[in-house]
């Protein structure tokens, strides 16, 4: 039981990292970005490519992968989403689904369809005992990065001018525009931030497990589950949701592996019925 809790929380850090951007885009731009999983995978593969092909040190490759993904997110926003996000939600959903397919196919063309992983020599000890549980060192590093990056995101959103603009756009677009905030630019920056954090999640995950273009959809679904549990549009909710989802999915896979997906989706249904705003959401997601 202790093992399940510890390993679930460690995995939850990555899920939260991936879900921050998904939650941000949903809260600010008001769209369900089905291309989000493709951004996570893109970040992982770009990091691996920079490290293996050009010998870039991992820390630099990770930053490059995250920023490159952020840039891709901003391009997607400027070229596609900016032109359609005011349309019917279904149209935007289909559009982002199409973008995910295009990004995945281009990724396959460029990097191939095979799974890739980045092996790191950290010099760290293999791990340490926490009670009766063996905790791998690098898992803990990844978890710490998740928490630190969450803190950075909170600071950016809560303490900077850019964060204030984002929050203003989220709360009331018309008032934000009347206050001189450029809606289009703010949305682009939001998508950049979302992509950067998605890319960071991919960059971390590629050191733990193989990543391939075809895996994008499960990341989108997992991110969706995380913010449904944690609270739609809430950053703190994404963090808590990620940790809860990590424990939940790990427990389901451990105790009942053959029906694990049914269990996690069952919990999603329970949340949607009894607490649609999630654990920390202020209210049900309503399209502005």
């Amino acid at each position: 039981m202790e093992d399940v809790l510890v390993y679930g929380l460690l995995r939850g850090g990555i899920y939260a990292l991936a879900a921050f951007g998904f939650s941000l885009v949903l809260g600010v731009i008001g769209i369900v970005n089905f291309a989000h999983g493709a951004l996570v995978v893109f970040g992982g593969l770009l990091t691996q490519y920079l490290a293996v092909k050009f010998g870039v040190p991992y820390a630099a490759a990770m930053i490059g992968g995250a920023l490159g993904t952020g840039l891709l997110g901003a391009v997607i926003q400027r070229l596609f989403v900016a032109r359609t996000f005011t349309l019917e939600p279904l149209m935007v959903l289909v559009q982002t689904f199409g973008i995910a397919t295009v990004v995945t196919e281009l990724g396959t063309l460029g990097w191939g369809s095979e799974e890739r992983m980045l092996r790191l020599k950290t010099g760290l000890p293999p791990g340490f005992m926490l009670g009766d549980t063996f905790v791998p060192s690098f898992d803990l590093v990844v978890f710490a990065v998740s928490l630190v990056s969450a803190a950075v995101l909170f600071v950016v959103l809560g303490r900077t001018e850019f964060g204030r603009a984002i929050r203003a756009c989220r709360d009331n677009r018309e008032s934000a525009q009347l206050s001189g905030i450029n809606l289009g630019r703010t949305f682009e920056k939001t998508m950049f931030l979302s992509g950067t954090w998605a890319g960071l999640a991919g960059a971390m995950f590629v050191t733990l497990s193989p990543v391939a273009p075809y895996m994008h959809f499960s990341w989108t679904v997992d991110s969706f589950l995380v913010i449904t549990i944690g609270g739609l549009g809430s950053m703190l909710g994404a963090l808590v949701g990620g940790l809860v989802f990590g424990v939940l999915s790990f427990g389901a896979s451990f105790y009942a592996p053959t029906i694990a997906p049914a269990i996690t989706f069952g919990v999603l249904l329970v949340f949607l019925v009894f607490r649609p705003q999630g654990l920390l959401g202020a209210g049900p997601a309503i399209r502005k």
Partner: peptide
């Protein structure tokens, strides 16, 4: 399950 992602459990 065929769509298993995490092998840690």
């Amino acid at each position: 399950p065929m769509n298993v992602q995490d092998l840690r459990p």
